[in-house]
């Protein structure tokens, strides 16, 4: 029994490593012109957004989460940030000319999302 519990615990560690760090989220959204990003329950949905290089897009952030942590979205590598009001949507216009991955987070880096430019 003890052995089984030990093995289960070790397997759980393996699961944590795989689920949070190694596994890729399947929820990747392609965007052509504009997309709604819902901010609710501690996450951005969709959190992973794919966009073509040089393409102009509008990210339309809709905040439903009352927590003050959700009040800002920051694209640190792009030097863009925006306040997200609770009652209305906030549009962020972007044209990304370089391929790569650009994260966006809340002020504390707990809400996390990323733009993949291909």
């Amino acid at each position: 029994m003890d052995m089984l519990i030990n093995l289960l615990a070790l397997a759980f560690i393996g699961f944590i490593v795989w689920w949070f760090w190694l596994a890729k989220s399947g929820d990747v959204q392609m965007v052509r012109d504009s997309i709604d990003v819902i901010v609710d329950g501690g996450i951005y949905s969709p959190a992973i957004i794919e966009v073509g290089r040089g393409q102009s897009i509008i990210l339309n952030f809709i905040r439903r989460d009352v927590s003050p942590c959700a009040g800002q979205v920051i694209f640190a590598e792009l030097g863009i940030s925006a306040e997200l009001p609770l009652t209305e949507s906030k549009k962020i216009e972007l044209t990304l000319d370089n391929e790569g991955e650009f994260g966006f987070t809340c002020q504390m880096g707990m809400y996390r999302g990323k733009l993949i430019v291909k």
Binding site: F20, D27, D40, G41, G42, I43, S45, R112
Partner: peptide, 9 residues
Amino acid sequence: KSFKNHNAN
């Protein structure tokens, strides 16, 4: 919700 998103907070 975070868990489903492969995230933890």
